[in-house]
């Protein structure tokens, strides 16, 4: 029983972080699916989402617990608005002018954008770690009473699961049902052909950036609060992990990004839980290498068909 509870707790820890990785990974995978480039500035969008929500939460300075859901909602909306605008602006300024050129050029532009945004926050907010207040406290104790190890599912973790689930379901419905979603799929299959058929591809590409950025902002708020502190480098490591998750799941595939995120989160958690925290990154990146060796398209990716 003892070991089962320990396993369960590590699973919960892994799934929590994994959900957030998945939310960020969506942004990488959607952009790649549509224009075939890696948006390296995506991690910074996530970091900005976290900063904006912290600024809003601190600014509202609400102490009464009754208002907390409202505060979180306002913070979430502000973070989404700012991050989405950033995502849109990044695409408009740094990627659209160089789109259609050699694929290295947008990549370099993306890295430049990432460095710019990181340093912008450095200057605007300072480089120190800033504490993020925990507004969702408490939790549910799982497993039997009476001594021994008890698994604990905190309300914060529960919130992360639920929000991720809602976002993912919403996104899936949006992609499969809505008109814009259909256009997204069409553009990802063949950009030139869909523009010939009357789809405004520029608008669709901008939309993918906005959607990706909005999900990253959600992740920024959730993870900022879950971890407890943010700094301007916050997005870099998370972005790297989410990118790994996207590749793991099959870059370009939305369900792949979700699965990749969860697999990566759980793998990390079990490595630190059963082996040692020192090997956490070794295992997650080792996993990536293995998957790329034996399944180069990732877990759920489809092999690319050469278009004639």
């Amino acid at each position: 029983m003892h070991d089962v509870m320990y396993f369960l707790q590590q699973l919960i820890n892994g799934l929590t972080v994994g959900s957030a990785y998945a939310l960020i990974a969506i942004g990488y995978t959607m952009v790649y699916g549509i224009i075939g480039m890696i948006n390296f500035a995506h991690g910074e969008i996530y970091m900005i989402g976290a900063y904006v929500s912290l600024i809003v939460i601190t600014g509202l300075a609400v102490t009464s617990p009754a208002w907390i859901p409202l505060v979180l909602l306002v913070a979430l909306i502000c973070a989404i608005i700012v991050s989405s605008s950033m995502g849109w602006a990044v695409e408009r300024i740094a990627y659209r002018p160089v789109r259609g050129q050699h694929r290295l050029i947008p990549l370099i532009s993306a890295i430049g954008m990432s460095i710019f945004l990181q340093n912008y926050v450095h200057l605007a907010q300072g480089s120190r770690n800033i504490g993020f207040p925990l507004l969702i406290e408490g939790g549910i104790s799982l497993g039997g009473s009476g001594g021994g190890f008890q698994a604990n599912l905190s309300y914060m973790q529960l919130t992360i699961f639920i929000v991720t689930l809602v976002c993912m379901t919403g996104l899936s419905l949006f992609i499969s049902r809505s008109k814009t979603g259909r256009a997204c799929r069409a553009v990802s299959q063949d950009l030139k052909m869909s523009s010939l058929l009357g789809i405004d591809t520029n608008r669709i590409i901008a939309a993918t950036f906005v959607i990706g950025a909005a999900l990253a902002a959600v992740a920024g708020l959730l993870l900022g609060m879950y971890y407890g502190s943010i700094d301007p480098l916050f997005g870099f490591i998370a972005g790297l992990k989410a990118f790994t998750a996207a590749v793991l799941g099959g870059i370009g595939s939305i369900p792949g990004a979700m699965l990749g995120g969860l697999v990566l989160g759980v793998a990390e958690s079990f490595t630190s839980g059963y082996l040692s925290g020192e090997y956490k990154d070794v295992v997650s990146f080792g996993l990536l290498i293995l998957i790329l060796l034996f399944r180069p398209t990732g877990l759920l990716g489809k092999p690319e068909v050469e278009k004639i």
Binding site: N13, Y227, S229, F234
Partner: peptide
Amino acid sequence: QKDFSSLVTK
């Protein structure tokens, strides 16, 4: 690193 949940559990 930001996530210490596994370490804390351990």
